[in-house]
Design a protein around this nucleic acid. Structure first.
Lengths: 133, 133
DNA sequence: CGTAAACATTACGTTAACGTAAACGTAAAC
DNA sequence: GTTTACGTTTACGTTAACGTAATGTTTACG
């Protein structure tokens, strides 16, 4: 198991371009791949997971900035969390709660949208059936 | 009940700017407000509903183009639908099914995200409690 | 009836999230 | 051991979804 990969493999397996990987690095969304003396950067499967999670959250309509808000959930381990100061913890909690609220709203809206889709799919299926006989 | 309003009232009640209304008109996302001889446009409550629905779908991560895809659900009445040709009906059905599939995926992802949020909110609440005693 | 507030139209500006090209070093394959 | 593919850095380009400013017209108000 070759646990290290270069940016080409990483980006391909994540379904993004190298440019996107570098862009996310520049935003601090993912850790910078370590270099080995030469100029090249090497990444692990962890980074791959991060990229996939980012893609998922993006599909939910979160901006990269919002993803950075909640990235503490996915991209910091427990050790790091203990280092966070008490004031920051309150701030984080507040942000998480805000995201929870908007997530709840989105779930409701999505449910409604899904019902609308289902109803209309049925409706158009019927229209086509009627046309065929 | 003054059923007609101008762009100022419409946009304010929809929580958008006049610019946004005109932009959506230019994309064919909402019907152009009718004019009364003079230059001004008048809108109905229907258009207000459309704007609110668009806003909701946008919050779900749909682009304006995707919203136009599914706008037949909200913005065409049954009469109009009967005018659509059979070939177009198949096309619409295909698009609706694609949106259903991605909506299902989003629901799952959203559910997962919500759980992550909840777990972390609990976790940070605990951290703060520990700190207080 | 004059004047301020609202509307219309046109056009250039802005931001997020990358794309793309250039110019150069590195690695892989033959 | 040299082509050929891959990586790095820098910088300008692009698209969606509007913002904003300018200029002229229309409406509302005292």
């Amino acid at each position: 198991m070759t646990d290290f990969m270069r940016i080409g493999e990483l980006s391909e397996r994540a379904g993004v371009t190298p440019r996107t990987v570098r862009y996310y690095e520049s935003l601090g969304l993912i850790p910078r791949g370590e270099r080995e003396g030469n100029g090249q950067h090497y990444y692990t499967k962890e980074t791959l997971k991060h990229l996939r999670k980012i893609d998922q959250l993006k599909s939910l309509g979160l901006s990269l900035e919002e993803i950075r808000d909640v990235s503490i959930i996915y991209f910091n381990d427990t050790n790091d969390k203990n280092v966070i100061k008490i004031k920051a913890k309150h701030k984080i909690l507040e942000i998480l709660r805000q995201h929870l609220a908007s997530t709840n709203q989105k779930m409701d809206a999505l449910q409604e949208f899904r019902n609308d889709l289902l109803a209309n799919i049925e409706y158009f299926e019927q229209l086509i059936m009627d046309h065929q006989k």
